[in-house]
Amino acid sequence: MYLEGLGNTLLIALIAAAIGIFIGVTMAMINYINKKTGKLKPAAAVCRFYITLVRGTPVVLQLMILYFVVFAFWDNGIMIGAITFGLNSGAYVAEIARSGFESVDDGQMEAGRSLGLSTWQTMRSIIIPQAVRNCLPPLFNEFIMLVKETAIVGYVGIYDLGKIPGLIQSRTFDYLFPLLIAAALYLVVVMALTRILHMIERNLAKSDRNRGGVRNGK
C-alpha cells in the first residue's frame, strides 16, 4: 500500500513537473521575446496575470476548484492532481526560468540576429539551452518541492503516500507508526533527489571549468 502511494506521489510529481516546465518555460520565453522585441505584449500581460493569480492563492484551493468544479465530470484523481500541480508549478517555474533567461548575455541574441537567424532560431539554438542550463538546480529543487507538496492530494481522496497513514490508522487505530513510515519514505525519496541535485550542480561546475574536453549536447 505504501508502495502504491509512493508510486502515485512520484507519478503526480513527474507529470506535474512536465506540465510546469512546459508552461513555465513558455511563459518566460514570451516575457523574454516581449522584452527584446516589444512584440507579444498581450501574451506577456496574460502571463503576468496568470502568475499573480496562481501565486496569490493557496494550492489547496486550486486543487479543490479543479477537482470539484472544473473537472467535476472526471474521476481520474491522479491526473487532476497532476494537472493542478502542473498549472501551479508553472507559475513558479516561470519565475525561475525568467531569471535563467535574464542571465543570458544580450550579445548572444544580437550575434544570432546579426548572422541572419530569426528570433526563434536564435532562441532555440542559443538562448533556451543557456537559460535552461543556468537554472537547472532551482528547477530540480522545484521538483523536490512538488514531490512533498503533492501530499495534499489526499484532500480530494487520491491515495498518494501522504494519504496512506490515515487509511491504515482508520483500520488499526494506530496513529504514530503509519505516519512515521510515510515520513521516512518521503525523507528517503527527498534525500535521494537532493543527492541527484548536488550531482547536477557538481557536473555543471565541472563542465564550466573544463569546457575544453566536455561536449554538451549536439
Binding site: G107, Q108, A111, G112, S125, Q130, G217
Partner: peptide, 8 residues
C-alpha cells in the same frame, strides 16, 4: 565583446 555562442 566577441559574442561567440557560449553553448557551442
Amino acid at each position: 565583446q566577441f559574442n561567440l555562442f557560449n553553448n557551442k
